[in-house]
Nucleic acid binder design. Structure first.
Lengths: 337, 337
DNA sequence: CCACAGCCTGGAAGCGGTTCCAGCATCGTC
DNA sequence: GACGATGCTGGAACCGCTTCCAGGCTGTGG
């Protein structure tokens, strides 16, 4: 089968022969190494051009012990949830940063056990030069696997129970504080919060930001309900909160999805937004503009997150100094608060 | 820098030495090749276990000329648009199919010129065993590049001006016909259509399906406006159509995004859906459930598309017989028609 | 004129596997 | 008992590139 247009690619030996030099000389030209005379360089470069030579990636990888590939691992119970625009944004950010390098991106959806073991194998067989990890739960075995593999690794967001040496994260704490302070600034005092999963760092940090802002304003946190970042959970949480705190006058939801659910629940309960209840979300990934009313929310740049993770990882691979960092968040004012 | 937990992985030579056999024998055990005695097999397997040996992926790749990696190339002018859930679904489908194999997924966003040249280089240096291509415009240079590289290639959707040897596509024509026939079945006759970009196969095929259904019902196509699959373009197209055909009683939009835009425009024009105007969309990627009213639409399974592309590609790589295919679409009834 | 440093050079040894092949037992058969 | 067929085996070549190293050349200063 298959077309036989696969005319074997020329090898470095053939280039060297044609240029009338040794293979090592040709290799030096290829890698712009020093100790190459002008004449040799010219001859080799001409031969390369004439033969249409391109170095074989695998052979080079074997010799240099560098594959030129980095992995982006996304660990999630539900592969469907990968369709979330969040991950798309990460990928866009990572890709755009990789374009500046000559690294390629290997994508691993490590949800199932099978996916995990494939990833483990990839790392242990030195199939990649480094790895970026997203959306790890605190107890995710992937963390150990990665650590044991001894490969450069950068986390996107911090796992709950340990802080990896290298990570890039959004300022969840500060963003939540910003959101709550905005509601306080509007004169609201009976502010409740819908948290994300408290088994995640983002979930707890945003909850903490809310409480800190309340306490600093001399108030006690007014009420909370835990969601899981999804719209449905936001609606459910909102109903619970309305039952327990009928007089609430503002809501900080730890994700736009949950805020959208909350808006729905509020409208069903006959509360008007923002007149009766002000609502602030978190993420600003597009949904926020399309809710009714459009959502005031905390903006975090997921693309930047991806870019910065990539930058840190490439520094690590190159053996340069680098540091973890926390990206700023900012409030985007729309109509809901 | 970096931790020095990188204790060098054992090599096959060390395994062989420990097992007291030659490297070739050890290799045979590893690859479950014939001509291995029971004793040899046991000894090697024990050595492998004791040493925690794992074959080096790169070395194997060099010897077998197989990288164990396939590329998924997504070509789009605007990298932002990659955040579209469409691509997320493709990736989920591809990944889940790859889990059954021992291939890994390399993701290439080939939007910019830089991205394209990186991809070209990847193919020419034999960095992958095969490639899947999505969202190519008719004149995309990528098509030539891929062809010249002589690598197994599978298209997701067909480019407009040539039909690749191997592709997987949704039944755009049939789906559009289905949608239009449904509107006809409701007794509507003044049915207009909002097409997708007519520079894409999906755009033209869906337009053709609409026309065929109209003609087969003895009607002449009532009106059309071209959009580009986005919500904004759908709204604009709807306004134009309302101007030109104020008495229209149904709309077939070639994407849910455009249908959502159309719904907005209709509501602004004071038309009620479905009473005054019935609306059918295309895609069923989640948005359709969240419009007001929920959208009757043509469902296509993007995950299946990804899965099938992967299946065809792996068959190709394995040198087995295989064939292109067109995946069925079906109508999903909601409230808009 | 010689010693020595410094640049180029090609040979050869790697990276870590797979695979061809000749050689050697062992077996069953005539 | 001689024979070929069969099953295992290890040596060696190979995949295509990088890199170490010894040696030859040139040029400079003493």
């Amino acid at each position: 089968m298959a077309t036989d247009t696969t005319r074997r690619q020329p090898t470095l030996d053939e280039v060297a022969a044609r240029a009338g030099v040794s293979r090592s000389a040709a290799s030096r030209v290829l890698n712009k190494a020093p100790h190459v005379s002008r004449a040799t360089r010219d001859a080799v470069e001409r031969a390369i051009k004439e033969l249409g030579y391109l170095p074989n990636r695998t052979a080079r990888a074997l010799a240099t012990r560098q594959t030129g590939i980095v992995a982006l691992a996304i660990s999630h119970d539900d592969p469907e949830l990968f369709a979330d625009p969040f991950f798309g944004q990460v990928i866009v950010g990572v890709s755009s940063a990789l374009e500046e390098t000559d690294l390629h991106l290997l994508l691993c959806l490590a949800s199932s056990g099978r996916g995990r073991s494939r990833l483990t194998n990839l790392l242990n067989t030195r199939g990649v030069d480094g790895i970026m990890l997203m959306a790890l739960r605190g107890d995710d075995p992937l963390a150990h696997i990665v650590r044991r593999a001894g490969l450069p690794a950068v986390y996107g967001g911090r796992p709950l129970h340990f802080t990896p040496q290298w990570y890039v994260d959004s300022d969840n704490l500060g963003g939540a504080r910003l959101a709550t302070e905005h509601l306080l600034g509007l004169g609201r005092t009976r502010i409740v919060t819908i948290t994300g999963e408290l088994g995640t760092e983002a979930g707890t940090a945003r909850y903490r930001g809310y409480r800190e802002a309340m306490v600093m304003a001399g108030l006690t946190p007014y009420g909370m309900a835990e969601g899981d970042f999804t719209e449905a959970s936001g609606a459910a949480a909102m109903k619970t909160l309305l039952d327990n705190h009928p007089d609430l006058d503002a809501v900080f939801a730890a994700s736009d999805n949950m805020a959208a659910g909350a808006l729905r629940a509020l409208s069903e309960a006959g509360r008007s937004v923002p007149a009766d209840v002000a609502v602030v979300g978190f993420d600003d990934l597009g949904i926020a503009e399309r809710t009714d009313p459009p959502l005031t929310t905390v903006h975090q740049s997921i693309q930047s997150l991806g870019k910065e993770m990539t930058r840190v990882l490439t520094e690590l691979i190159a053996g340069r100094e680098t540091a973890s960092l926390i990206l700023p968040t900012r409030l985007v004012l729309r109509d809901s608060a």
